[in-house]
């Protein structure tokens, strides 16, 4: 299991990175690599070019912006988990990050990479959706904000254009009542089903091609989760009720 050949690029600035991904055919951005490198090892992904953004300075900032928390593209999940600022302004983000894989993975994995990878069973996309946050995308054409509700389009598909780099994720200040619950076969595995609560809002993950907002009183309505070796569709619908009750206790 070794990656197929690719050309490696290590830009030193966001501008350089954007001009590379805008001009290269079939380029993939490498941040923490905790999802991309397994795909390369399995050769499920065989990009012609890898643009490694790890050499870009000051790209790992976690700071307050517009009353919320902005997380730079290289901020590691472990740093977000440990951040006093995140704990104060957006404790749901800290709680959710602790559920992502294992600490050793989180030492390397990034919040923005997790969002851009858009695994439907991942916690952080559902957090961004529940909170109504956004991501910032940069390209040689300029930058734009993409709200969470528009960002996730299908399984591992997002609104990012092929020449765009996700440079920052923004989570609104959220000190109200929150909760996150998930069920997985083993600790650290992707969730079979999960629920994120903020106030009265409920976002589900692991049960649709993207994270979805749902009605806490009838969370499974309209869902058609897929079946796999780990869970049938019916079992996933059952888990939706279970995890929803956990974040909205009677």
């Amino acid at each position: 299991m070794k990656p197929a050949p690719f050309e490696y690029h290590a830009p030193a600035s966001i501008g350089e990175a954007c001009s590379l991904i805008g001009s290269l055919e079939d380029a993939k951005v490498l941040a923490g690599g905790q999802s991309l490198i397994p795909l390369l090892n399995f050769r499920l992904a065989r990009p012609a070019h890898l643009v490694d953004i790890n050499r870009i300075a000051n790209f790992d900032r976690i700071y307050e912006r517009d009353g919320g928390i902005a997380v730079g593209a290289l901020a590691r999940q472990a740093d977000v988990e440990d951040s006093q600022l995140v704990a104060r302004v957006c404790p749901l983000l800290a709680a959710a990050t602790r559920l992502v894989a294992h600490r050793v993975i989180r030492n390397r994995g990034t919040v923005c990479g997790n969002l851009a990878h858009a695994d439907p069973a991942s916690e952080l996309p559902a957090v961004l959706l529940a909170l109504g946050g956004h991501v910032v995308a940069h390209s040689a054409r300029g930058s734009r904000i993409i709200p969470a509700a528009d960002f996730f389009t299908s399984v591992m598909q997002t609104r990012l254009a092929s020449d765009e780099l996700l440079t920052e994720a923004w989570f609104p200040k959220s000190t109200g009542r929150f909760g996150i619950a998930e069920e997985s076969r083993r600790h650290g595995d992707f969730a079979l089903a999960g629920a994120v609560r903020y106030g009265d809002r409920l976002a589900l993950f692991g049960v649709a091609p993207t994270p979805v907002l749902a009605d806490p009183r009838d969370p499974a309505r309209g869902l058609q989760p897929s079946a796999d070796l780990e869970a049938t569709a019916e079992f996933r619908l059952h888990l939706v009720q279970v995890v929803t009750e956990r974040v909205f206790p009677q």
Binding site: G33, Q34, I37, A78, V104, N107
Partner: peptide, 23 residues
């Protein structure tokens, strides 16, 4: 070689990481 077993964990600048998931 895909980040599941943890056998290849080393310290990178003092923090444990899996080296099968790094170039």
């Amino acid at each position: 070689e895909h980040g599941v077993c943890g056998c290849c964990t080393v310290l990178l600048d003092g923090a444990p990481v899996r080296v099968c998931l790094m170039l």
